[in-house]
């Protein structure tokens, strides 16, 4: 069996489990969790396409998450477009925006790339805040995303939204997995590990870099669309720079070298938040403490740690 077929099989099983879960035990909280997880995990995994797979550290990736949320909510509120065209148009618009932003940014290296992406996100955020007639300013796009039922699917209904999110999460992750495993992914890794050598081998650097930047932005926007559906609107917080931080922290907590690291990190981050905000008013204190323990105790993401631990264990038993 090829790895692709094997992973495709696993993806199908996971999807079946997720879709079948509500039949076994009905927990709206679990469904909410998966909806939020799918938004954050797609977003964080898309960031890892840049950070982990290509070595491009972006501090401003959240702008595409926010862009996706706003573009989708605006298309649904302002036009009569049906769900699917609005969704596809959102991804297309994001790709266009990413092409522009990426075209400007990718020639910068290392930390300067990180800074310029952050600066552009700040500008984007301040445009959202100031352009009140379009975006509602700081109050966001309120009043809900209109219900447009297609083929019996009402996306404002929690169970239906859950099913859509589960599907997009699995398909999105599988697609990203496929991208990193492809020859294109190999090229990116080569650039990440040794840019000079890749250039020497005659690989034009900017093309794959720009391509992965646009791809990552589209997957981030996918997460943003799900987030906007969950809150039934779009709010500036979805585009502010702490949201970029969320993705970075999810990637770091879960593991930068493991493909599923960002997914694991997102789950941990959300669970930490959900549990501690419920238990205590001082959730920041506890959450910060736990994150410190993770960071200082493992010094890498959880999945990376587990993999190395296993590798060491196997080496020792041999």
């Amino acid at each position: 069996m090829t790895p692709l077929a094997r992973e495709g099989g696993i993806a199908l099983i996971v999807l079946a489990l997720l879709l079948g879960a509500p039949a076994l035990f009905s927990s709206p909280a679990f469904e909410d969790f998966i909806i939020r997880l799918s938004a954050l995990a797609l977003f964080a995994s898309s960031l890892n396409l840049l950070v982990g797979a290509s070595g491009m550290i972006s501090f401003g990736h959240g702008m595409f998450y926010g862009f996706g949320a706003y573009a989708f909510a605006l298309l649904m509120q302002r036009t009569a477009l049906s769900l699917l065209p609005a969704f596809l148009l959102t991804l297309g618009l994001t790709a266009l925006a990413a092409l522009l932003v990426g075209g400007v940014c990718i020639r910068l290296k290392t930390i300067y790339f990180a800074f310029v992406t952050l600066a552009i996100q700040m500008l984007f955020y301040s445009v959202i805040i100031s352009w009140e007639s379009l975006t509602g300013g700081d109050q966001g796009l309120r009043g809900g995303i209109p219900r447009r039922v297609i083929a019996g699917l009402d996306i404002n209904h929690q169970r239906h939204l859950y099913q859509v999110c589960a599907l997009l999460l699995v398909v999105g992750l599988f697609a990203m997995r496929h991208i990193t495993a492809s020859p294109f992914g190999m090229t990116l890794r080569m650039i990440r590990d040794n840019e000079a050598r890749a250039a020497f081998l005659g690989i034009p650097l900017w093309r794959p870099k720009l391509a992965v930047f646009v791809l990552a932005a589209v997957f981030a926007a996918l997460g943003g669309v799900l987030a906007s559906l969950f809150v039934s609107g779009a709010y500036p917080e979805l585009a502010d720079w702490p949201i970029s931080g969320q993705a970075i922290f999810a990637v770091m907590l879960g593991g930068i070298e493991s493909f599923l690291g960002p997914l694991a990190g997102s789950a941990i981050l959300l669970a930490l938040n959900d549990i501690f905000t419920r238990i205590t008013e001082y959730h920041g204190l506890v959450q910060g403490g736990v994150i410190l323990l993770f960071a200082l105790g493992l010094r890498r993401g959880v999945l990376d740690f587990l993999r190395r631990d296993r590798a060491r264990g196997e080496a020792a038993s041999r």
Binding site: D32, F230, Y235, E237
Partner: peptide
């Protein structure tokens, strides 16, 4: 605590009921 963030506030409101 919804942290004055819309998405977080929406989440806890739903969770409280659900």
């Amino acid at each position: 605590d919804g942290k004055a963030q819309p998405q977080e506030t929406a989440r806890i409101a739903r969770e409280m009921i659900n």
